[in-house]
Every structure is written in structure tokens, then in C-alpha cells.
């Protein structure tokens, strides 16, 4: 009841509230796959991007078609531009993906917590990404590469549906040169694909992982569950595995209730959790 008669100190009312978007202009745009685009944006006000930590997201919208949570996929060391990789799956994401250079979009954020890249310094780290789940992991990968000497082995396991659905194909080779062991696989392939075919968890057995590793994973929930199981076989338990979660985030600030998972508001308390913390709640049905 203490808050009742003594609400928090009044903020300056000329500061916009947390639900008000800031105009950002599309600087460039690149098509990654048949349904996924990467946009680079800068603020109309100061021609800069956003300072963010790897794993954080923004709420973004185009042309009055509704707002969606999208992870930031840029380089945290280069906050002069805001980078988002967006898959066109609904009305709002379709409008964002259609935006052309020069178009002004609305952005709120950044929101949420981040991948524990600093906590993991001194460790071996395996990054397991499924599909567009590589986008939220890209800032963590770039942050670890920027401080390559602070980590032991760095391993990326990346699974996609097909070769043409793989993100950042040009970059995978560069990451390899910069100290990541990169293993990629696709669920199905034609004769033109000369890499691995099979699900991403099959890569775990091939990457010579040990209990010294910590993991970061992002992808469809089923993929992350199976990844957690497979990593446990190599002694990497749930406390050493960090996942990025998804529910129906609508406000980004813990006010709208939509992204609840049991005791957590994923937008406020996440999106990054250690697997141990979440496993019980994800195993319950329909929570």
C-alpha cells in the first residue's frame, strides 16, 4: 500500500512515455531468404542507432499495420545503426519487410535482458541456432568475436530448413576465419547442397563438445527443447544453457500480460533465461 499515496517521483512530462515509438528511417535493405529481409535503420532525431546489449529486442512497426517484437541482430560494437532481420509471417512483419530505404518506421526500445556473453568469458561456448533464431544470436556471436581472446573454443551449430533459408551465408565463412567452428545443416536438400543434411541436434554429437562448454540457443521451442536434451548428454546441463524465449509480447515493458510463462513476464524478465529455470514451465502443457 506504500505506493498508493506516494507514487514514484513524477517524470518530466515532455519525455515521451514508453509506449510511444520513435521515428527511425530505413537506410538500407537486403533480402536474406525468400521471406526474410535485413533492414538497417537510424533515428530520425539523431541519425544514430540504439545502444543495446546482445539479445535485446525492440517493438517495431511500419505504416500503421501494428507493432511486433523483433530482436536486434546488429553488432553491439557499432550502435550507429539499428539492424533487424525480419521474417514476413503476418501483417505487421509483412509491412516492415516491404519498407523501402527512406521509409520512416516506429521503434520502441531496446527492451529485455541479454545473452550473458561477459559472464561466459573464459569459457568454451556453443551457439545453437535454428532457422531465423540465428538473428538474435548474431550480436552475441559478434560480441564474442570482438573479444575472441577472452574465450576458449567457440562453436556455432546452425540448422535451417533448406540451404536457401539460411541466414548470413556470407558471414558464416568470415566467422569461421575469425575463430568460430561453424557447423551448418539443413533439414532437406537437393543435389546442389554439399553440406550436412539432418536436424541441428545431430551436429551436437559431431562438434566434440565437453562439459566445459556453456551454450546459447535460439530457435523454435521444440528445437531448443531437443537441443537441451542433446547437450545434457555431453555434460552441458540446463544451468549452463541459455535460451531466448518467445511469447506474444505486445508492450515490451511488462504491462500488457501477454507474454506470461508461469512466474515470468518474458519481455520484462527475459527474453533470455537459463534452461534450468524454464524447463519445468516449458514441459507443462499449454502454460
Amino acid at each position: 500500500m506504500a505506493s498508493l499515496k506516494s507514487p514514484p517521483e513524477r517524470e518530466r512530462h515532455d519525455e515521451p512515455g514508453p509506449m510511444v515509438p520513435e521515428p527511425f528511417v530505413v537506410r538500407s535493405k537486403r533480402q536474406d531468404t525468400s521471406d526474410t529481409w535485413t533492414l538497417e535503420l537510424t533515428s530520425v532525431a539523431d541519425d544514430a542507432g540504439l545502444h543495446f546489449a546482445p539479445g535485446q529486442f525492440t517493438m517495431i512497426e511500419a505504416g500503421g499495420s501494428g507493432e511486433v517484437p523483433i530482436s536486434i541482430s546488429g553488432d553491439p560494437g557499432e550502435p550507429d545503426v539499428l539492424v533487424h532481420t525480419v521474417r514476413s509471417v503476418g501483417l505487421a512483419t509483412q509491412a516492415i519487410c516491404k519498407a523501402q530505404p527512406g521509409q520512416v518506421l516506429g521503434v520502441r526500445g531496446p527492451f529485455g535482458n541479454s545473452w550473458p556473453v561477459e559472464l561466459l568469458e573464459g569459457r568454451d561456448v556453443v551457439v545453437a541456432a535454428g532457422g531465423i533464431g540465428l538473428a538474435p544470436l548474431r550480436p552475441a556471436i559478434l560480441a564474442m568475436i570482438a573479444n575472441r581472446e577472452r574465450y576458449g573454443r567457440l562453436v556455432l551449430l546452425y540448422g535451417a530448413r533448406t540451404a536457401s533459408q539460411m541466414l548470413y551465408v556470407d558471414e558464416l565463412e568470415r566467422w569461421r576465419e575469425e575463430g568460430f567452428e561453424v557447423h551448418a545443416t539443413v533439414d532437406s536438400a537437393g543435389p546442389e547442397w554439399l553440406g550436412h543434411v539432418g536436424v541441428v541436434t545431430r551436429l551436437i554429437g559431431r562438434a566434440r563438445l565437453t562439459a566445459s562448454f556453456a551454450g546459447l540457443t535460439c530457435g523454435p521451442e521444440i528445437m531448443m527443447r531437443l537441443t537441451a536434451l542433446a547437450l545434457a548428454d555431453f555434460g552441458i546441463d540446463g544451468e549452463q544453457l541459455y535460451v531466448s524465449t518467445e511469447r506474444n509480447m505486445q508492450c515490451g515493458i511488462g504491462h500488457c500480460g501477454h507474454c506470461q510463462l508461469g512466474p515470468w513476464l518474458l519481455c520484462r524478465d527475459g527474453p533470455v533465461f537459463d534452461w534450468q529455470t524454464l524447463a519445468h514451465w516449458l514441459q507443462l502443457r499449454d502454460v
Partner: peptide, 22 residues
């Protein structure tokens, strides 16, 4: 068994529909 499990996972085509937006 391990390949059967992988195949079942493959059948789910998880990247097709139920996909993270994040």
C-alpha cells in the same frame, strides 16, 4: 534410435510454421 529421433524431429518441419519472430 538416435536417427529415428532425429527423423521425427525433421518431420516436424519446425522452421516451416511455428517459428520465432524474435
Amino acid at each position: 534410435i538416435s536417427r529415428l529421433q532425429a527423423t521425427r524431429f525433421q518431420l516436424l518441419d519446425v522452421y516451416g510454421k511455428s517459428e520465432v519472430t524474435a
